[in-house]
Simulated assay, not measured.
Amino acid sequence: MTAPATLRVEFCGERYTATPGTDFVVGREGDLEIDDNPYLHRRFLLITEEAGLWWIANVGSLLSATITDGSGGVQAWLPPGARLPIVFPRVQVLFSAGATTYDFMIENDREYFSTTNIHAGASGTTTIGAVPLTSSQRLLVLALAEHVLKQDSPGRGQIPSSAEAAERLGWPLTTFNRKLDNVCEKLDKVGVQGLRGGRGKLATNRRARLVEYAVASHLVSRDDLVLLERNAASGAETPGDVDGE
C-alpha cells in the first residue's frame, strides 16, 4: 500500500502538519482553531487519510467551503456532508462565517493531478467562461473582496456590508444592489453555486459566496486593487445603465 503524503496546513502565518491515522479538525475548536466566531462550527472541516489518500470533509451543518487547486483553474463547492480528495500539490480552502471570510492553504507532497491556467490580458473586461464582467462590475467585486485580498498570508478578512461597499465606490446603494443582482445572476447561470437562495438570508450569504468565488478563481487579485484607488481619484462617478449592468 502506498504511504500517504505529508500534509501541511498554513493559516495566518502558522504552519500545521496533518498526521496519517489521526483526524485533523478545523473549526472554532480543534487542531486548527480558526477563531472564536460564534457563526463558525466547533468542528467544521475534517482532514483525514484513507488508503493512502487525504480527504477533506465538511462535518458542519450550515456552512459550506470553496475548495480550489490554488491556481484557480479547478474549483469545487463543499456543502455540509460532502467530502473531496486532496489531489493537488496546493489546495486553497475558503469559507465564510458571519461577516468574515477565512482561507487557509494545504500543501501536499504528492501531486496526483496538475492544472494549467490561461489568463487573458485584456483590460476593462474579465470573462468567466463566456460571461463578461463590465468594468463597474469588477469594481463591485473588488470593493467586496478588498479586505480578503489585502492579506499578506492566508487568514481572515471582513466582508463589508452593501452600504459600506457602495460608499467605498461612491455609488448610490440602489445602484450597488442592482449591479450585485446582475453579477450574481450571471455567475449563477454558468453554474456557480451559493449565489441564489431564499428571501431574508440571500443578501449576506451571496456577498460572502461571491468573495469566495472571486478570490478562489482569481477573478480578481491583489494587483487589481489599484482600480479602486483610481475610481476614488476620478471622483467615483455613478456608473450608467448602458454598460451591461
Rank of each mutant, 00 (worst) to 15 (best):
D31Q: 09
D31E: 12
D31P: 07
L32H: 06
L32K: 06
E33P: 03
I34W: 01
D36S: 05
D36F: 02
D36L: 01
D36A: 01
D36W: 01
N37S: 11
N37E: 11
P38E: 05
Y39K: 02
Y39W: 13
L40F: 00
H41D: 00
H41T: 00
H41G: 01
H41A: 09
H41M: 04
R42E: 07
R42G: 02
R43D: 02
R43E: 08
F44M: 07
F44G: 01
F44Y: 15
L45K: 00
L45C: 02
L46N: 14
L46W: 09
L46M: 10
I47D: 00
I47L: 13
I47W: 03
T48R: 15
T48K: 12
E49M: 11
E49Q: 15
E49Y: 07
A51T: 13
G52P: 06
G52M: 08
G52V: 07
L53I: 15
L53A: 11
W54V: 05
W54D: 03
W55L: 10
W55H: 15
I56T: 03
I56W: 04
I56C: 08
A57V: 04
A57M: 13
N58D: 09
G60M: 03
G60R: 03
G60D: 03
S61V: 13
S61M: 04
L62P: 01
L63P: 05
S64M: 04
S64F: 11
S64I: 02
A65N: 08
A65F: 10
A65M: 09
A65R: 09
T66M: 14
T66C: 13
I67K: 04
I67P: 03
T68A: 13
T68C: 14
D69S: 10
D69F: 08
D69W: 12
G70W: 08
G70Y: 08
S71M: 10
G72F: 07
G72R: 08
G72M: 10
G72W: 10
G72A: 08
G73I: 07
G73T: 15
G73D: 10
G73K: 09
Q75D: 07
A76G: 07
W77V: 13
W77C: 06
L78F: 06
L78E: 06
L78V: 08
L78Q: 07
L78C: 12
P79Q: 14
P79M: 13
P79H: 13
G81Y: 11
G81I: 12
A82V: 11
A82R: 15
